[in-house]
Amino acid sequence: MRTKLMIAMAGIAALLLARNLYVILLELPDEAAQGAIYRIIFFHVPAAWTAFLCFFAAMIASILYLVKKDLRHDAFAASATEVGLAFGAANLISGMIWARIIWGIWWTWDPRLTSMLVGWLIYAGYLMLRRAIEDPTERAKIAAVVSIFAFVDVPIIFFSIKWWRTQHPQPVVWAGGQMDPAMYNMLFMNWIPFLLLGAVLVMIRMNQERAQREIDAMRRYAHAM
């Protein structure tokens, strides 16, 4: 049942993505100021939204773990964080490609870029910390606390860097203008397959985590014999 649901969701995501690609590449016109490269935004922005949603879900699951002590919540938090990191990486890399073409530089210390990078590093640290702890309940407890700290910290980082950098001229992204409704809607249209894909990946990772728990239990059982 669960496998079928996953396949169905992945299929819908693939179909939607194919349809969106057709519209993005062939139907939407080039942007007036940026030309063809602006199309990267349809992947760049939904990736960021998906990543933040994953980190938010991971924090909720972490709080639930601390309240209920159910390892399934921990497995969800770990899976969501991993998937969030993948989407965060997609966001950072696509942004860098865009920046190279439009601004002529790979990187600028703008608040959004910097806080995404710092957040990414904190969550990468979260995964490394998980690796370093063997006992499952101990790992779940410590990881949950780190996840909560990380999610509280990211907005503070964003605003602190925003204050810091507003003293300096910032690169103008859309020249202060509004996006065309067709393009604006496309951002959300393309978010749907991203969300589906993210959900499928989280489900696959959770299956793996469950299998891992079962293997560990069997191994302990074998040792006890």
Binding site: L121, G125, M128, A132, I157, S160
Partner: peptide, 12 residues
């Protein structure tokens, strides 16, 4: 682990 975890969180 300690420096790797705390420095990014301390940034603000």
């Amino acid at each position: 682990m300690l420096p790797m975890l705390v420095y990014p969180i301390m940034i603000p």
